[in-house]
Nucleic acid binder design. Sequence first.
RNA 1: GCCGGGGUGGCGGAAUUGGUAGACGCAGGGGACUCAAAAUCCCCCGGGAGGCGACUCCCAUGCGAGUUCGAGUCUCGCCCUCGGCACCA
Length: 825
Amino acid sequence: MSAATTPSVTGAGMPLPDAYDPQGVEEKWQARWRSRGTNATDVAEGPAKFYALMMFPYPSAEGLHVGNLFAFTGNDIFARFHRMRGRTVFEPLGFDAFGIHSENFALKVGVHPSELIPRNIANFRRQLERAGLMVDWRYAVNTTDPGYYRWTQWVFLELYNRGLAYRKKAAVNWCPFDKTVLANEQVINGECERCGSKVEQRFLEQWFFAISKFAPRLLANLEWLDWSETTKTAQRNWIGKSEGAEIRFVAGGGVAEPGTAITVFTTRPDTIFGATYLVLAPEHPLADALTTEAQRPAAERYREQTADQDLVSRRIGSREKTGVFTGSYVTNPATGGQIPVWIADYVLMDYGTGAIMAVPGHDERDFAFAQTFGLPVVQVVAPDGDALSPDPPLAAYTGPGRLVRSGAFDGLTIDEGKQRIVEWLAGHGSATPVENYRIHDWCISRQRYWGPPIPIIYCDRCGPVPVPTADLPVLLPFIADFKPDDSGVSPLARHEEWYSVPCPKCSGPARRETDVSDTFLDSAWYFLRYPSAHRDDTAFDAVLTRRWLPVDSYIGGNEHAVLHLLYARFVTMVLHDAGLLDFEEPFTRFRAHGHIVRDGAKMSKSKGNIVNPDAYIAEWGADAFRTYLMFLGPFEQGGDFRDASISGPRRFLDRLWSAVIASTTTGQPDDGVLRELHRTIRKVTEDIPRLSYNTAIAALMAYMNVLRAGERRPHRAETEPVVQLVAPFAPHIAEELWERLGHTTSVFDSGWPSFDAALAADRTVTVAVQVNGKLRGTVVVAPDAAEEDVFAAAAAEPAIAKYITTPPRKRIYVPGRLMNLVIGG
RNA sequence: GCCGGGGUGGCGGAAUUGGUAGACGCAGGGGACUCAAAAUCCCCCGGGAGGCGACUCCCAUGCGAGUUCGAGUCUCGCCCUCGGCACCA
């Protein structure tokens, strides 16, 4: 903007010049919204509540990202639209500010997170307000506020009291240089992403939530949730249901106690006649007992070796099969034969039973292992029960077929075989049909500083004791040196005056749990908090919760499709079972938004292609920037950010401004323009609920072209409804124009224009005429023209008639759209 | 390797879900206004061939087949690309 355009006239009440000045308009309306309380929701009453939730941001030091703004704007449009349609809309926002990300950043810049985070939040909030979101900031939440995490701790205790929080030893990634636990995604090729040290595996006592118990419900409810299909698919895959059987293999000779049985999980019980060996995970509890003296040195060496490896490189490292024979044998309950028991790291302790029956004839991994160690391969399924060639086979056969070499079961299909064989084995007490789930229990312990302390106290006499609710929050103490050390325990463990406390039960000497909880716990319940954010006597008020939840519309990134959304569903389900909520699914509707990229690449600091919204908003205005972001592409797919293209949406707003300012009230509105207006109303009204914002904006632009065609002066009846249609996208300019049209109340309380189908209807339609599928011309007819009339009109058109060399053999007519004439043989 | 998006003009993207491919915007070209420039306004703008001409014809939605009167859209087989997951028995 050139400085010469306007004198600086801002502030409520002062008149603005007649040229569109976004900075002035936006400043004026943001001030007025604040003073009038336009964006404040009455959480207690109002008709037809609509809870428009967006995933809350992590307030990074770099400030608001265009990606955040893209998502928030999409939600804001949806929320404003529903408000104009008469709903009582609640659009809250907050900050997800705990976690390793903040902590690492604080360590890097040498500023304590308790100082850094409020600063970042203030900056974020300034940017968000500048963007013109309809957020009711009175209900903002901040996960690092003791008034919030007090209730996060309360949620933990609700789970604990219901037996859903428990402690067990688990392997974690440990960086010996940074002296910290690493998440799987921080381990790159077995090395720490920050310092490159080789990551080790440590076994630490960790807190878990028993989410796997809820797997069947979490899966079943996906059937009826109105969520993006891609998100539901991701959740189904993550939950990973598989049907199969657990089969017991009893140990024979060797060292095992007589009668020792290994239970395996398999989805292919039909192939049991081809099970030629068994494999235990190295951590399997029976691995030691089944190892003979002769095999012990080799087996122990192997188990140490796998224990040394970090979790990630063991999972994604080489697929070369390694393993060691235990020296023991078990009986195959189908064949009665003795088969060897091996230990190998391709079997994972945390899936199924940590033991498998290996069928190298029909499983690629087992086949590779059998090849490496010279174990027998037996084919028991053949395509249509045919030839067994070559024998032994050159590869595992995993396709369909019929059973062979399976005794009485020969000739059955795979599905029949599964059922019949499990029934038969079950009769002997050696098999049980089971459903297995891939999903693991949720490990919530973090050996870190920047999180809510887990509210448990360890007493020598009483064991683990939950902190009494009245004593919450367990405040996170200020520690200047919060850097993790070599001990593998949280920095809080170094703060003795904090962790030494009397036992709440017996008052004897006791110690606090020094781990903090995962940030995913903070975000697993924040949507319950918003309506009650002003209440410090309860996590969520029963009446307010009944009024506002479940969430009507949730918008967020698909990168949280699995963990966050699953954890939030799980916590909601638990609180429902506890009688605290009367619904068990928190988000009725969820839509995943796309991502903004630049030059085809994800924006990242290292690529130096981050877009800071501040500069764009300063140059073009928030309204133009919002409209531009939404015009980039389909909201659910994202788009490519190009600086140059912003001028388009800005020009659109300029034209809207001058069209409205120039509107006349004399004379009659133009019929053709009114028809386009009603079509535009219909289009925008249909597009917004589909989040098809880009096409809604395109329709508005197209209407502006019609409105201004021939440099005519528009009639007020032709412009006034457009101000309402534009309002969700460009709220400030809409308010200003609405006021200039003489209204004294907010455009957001003015309702939504309705369209008149009769006015929108065409008087004539253009029908495409094809001959043999090729377009040869068009005819203009009445919308209800009979097929014969259309044909007559087409035949009268010379450009078409010249192709109609013989009477059409066939005639296809799509009323009002197209006629295809099939000529010749 | 598996799962899920996506491939349409110079660019971002439309296409009522099988019915005139390229809406809308950007960039570009030409013109008006101006001493000039910016801004603004008007016109043109997928490729090729023909015509002085309003025009005419052909080709064209990643590639190759198929279904259909008709395919960007459906089916099969490939290629490329962006996400996510990783030996899940």
